[in-house]
Amino acid sequence: VPHSLGLVYRQPACDDPEIEKAAQVAVDYLNQHLLHGYKHTLNQIDKAKVWPRRPFGEVYELEIDTLETTCHARDPTPLANCPVRQVSQHAVEGDCDFHVLKQDNQLTVLHAKCHSTPDSAEDVRKVCSDCPLLIPLNDTRVVHAAQAALAAFNARHNGSYFKLVEISRAQLVPLPESTLVEFVVAATDCVAKEVIEPTNCNLLAEKQYGFCKTTLTEKLGGEEVAVTCTVFHTQPEVPQPQPDVAKTADPIPAVEQPAPALPSAGPPAPSVTLGHVM
């Protein structure tokens, strides 16, 4: 809009209650639309501008820093109860840009774009020299650990056969040499004890996800696998508009949305593009 029309923004303080409220709505939106990785929590509001919006309302333009929590995106635990991933666990931060519309006292996210980045190995080493560091999710040791853990889980589990859905996080422990892997599984229409051909097992229409943590330790003459899984209640799928950007299999999730053109009235229905960055 030409400046001659007098459209100007205001800049409340970043900790102003109205800005904090809009930021929380933005972070909730981010978490509701994540399909991979972990929920993020608000850490700091970097910048805030408030633009008038015609014919009604205001648009909050926010720059926000987030931190990864230990709750997976599919974990129903409320964000307030999700612990922040500590530096010693190799923390991950997110940098987000949001546009939030305030109209009729309702806050609606118009645009969301986030990039997440793991802390540097050097910073983790400053905290402790033997902290396990993140390693790529496609590392053969990681994939092997997840598959071995899932096989062990299915062998000891009464009920549905579970399939691997996502490897979410992986770290290497130097001594004793072990691989820590967190992964997501989902129930199929097969019974675990009766499965002969896993490729014939299909995920249930009403998805039932589980979140597993495993430690695979190298031993003399073999390996030892410890695995614990939490199976969540069945969840309805969050409708996801078709993405414009090709999905990749990188480990850290991000939400990115193109800004839709502002309609003349009424809250817009934002489209979501899910991408992944490291």
């Binding site: 007098g6 100007v8 923004y9 205001r10 800049q11 409340p12 303080a13 970043c14 900790d15 102003d16 800005i19 904090e20 929590t41 608000l42 850490n43 700091q44 509001i45 970097d46 910048k47 805030a48 820093d65 931190l67 922040v84 530096v87 923390a91 931060e93 802390d119 910073d123």
Partner: peptide, 27 residues
């Protein structure tokens, strides 16, 4: 036309409007 409500008024305390407080820790 841009306002800076966090800036100090005459005799008032200087408040830095942005960035806001760090809730956990900075990387």
């Amino acid at each position: 036309k841009v306002t800076h409500p966090g800036a100090a008024g005459p005799g008032g305390p200087l408040v830095r409007p942005c960035p806001g407080k760090v809730r956990h820790f900075k990387l």
